[in-house]
Write a protein that binds this DNA or RNA. Sequence first.
DNA 1: ATTGACCTTAAACTTAACTTAAAGGTTAAG
DNA 2: CTTAACCTTTAAGTTAAGTTTAAGGTCAAT
Lengths: 136, 136
Amino acid sequence: MKIGELAKRSGMAASRIRFYESNGLISAVKRKANGYREYGAEAIYILDMITCGQQAGFSLEELRQLLPKGESGWKHGELLEALKRKVSDIEALEGRLAETKQHLLRAIAQIEHKPSDIDCEDNARQILENIQIKAV
Amino acid sequence: MKIGELAKRSGMAASRIRFYESNGLISAVKRKANGYREYGAEAIYILDMITCGQQAGFSLEELRQLLPKGESGWKHGELLEALKRKVSDIEALEGRLAETKQHLLRAIAQIEHKPSDIDCEDNARQILENIQIKAV
DNA sequence: ATTGACCTTAAACTTAACTTAAAGGTTAAG
DNA sequence: CTTAACCTTTAAGTTAAGTTTAAGGTCAAT
């Protein structure tokens, strides 16, 4: 499979795949006689791992540490720890998100319960203060 | 209050406050005879609004549309709609996050239940496939 | 009157994660 | 045989959200 097909199948731009290779996220692949990159079907899994990892909040730098590079296989211990750390991160984020949502809902309620007959300017600061989402 | 004090009180770098002013997020403020910016106490609320909005997932571009600029007060309707949209965004994010977490937990379980006696290379793809977090 | 802590502006730099451009080689079709 | 659709590389551009730098004005104290 040439890079164009891998791009189509993975939903990634070819430039992005080359970018990942040049940045060490994926190992350099075999070339045909003409210099074209030739990928096997498993390449799609690696690329999917990257997008999945990104969705889970891993940066490319983090993924570079975790993805199996060339001959060296997975590092179980490290991978496991990273996954567990990421679960903690997600839990923290869930908490923050829930709080933020409550503040937004309270702000909405406040705006909806004071119809247009109030003086906007005078009450701006009050809404302002209530809309605030305290740093977590 | 000069910009340095506002910076300290708001926890923002002075450069950041100037940046917000030059980018139209906050309206230009009065100057003293020497050209120094002079802020009133309410400035802190506006800055807090910005950090709060950012925490809630608003980009500066979005905040620029929503924050009261100069004489014009708040636009209730628009603000309300934006807040509601943001709540929807948060709910969608919550769902995605929960899913991601499940996938991570499953991946962790799988790794923990196959101890080191298995052949990493042979099973890499299997783990790989199971770790995948489907795009939402 | 000079040091140090402030303030001013404009412009350049930073980081992440890519994309786009420039310049050129390869291949399949008509 | 030429044209279009691929592929290659290196380098430069993009976006967001600031920060840093350079060059200079101001102010309070010594």
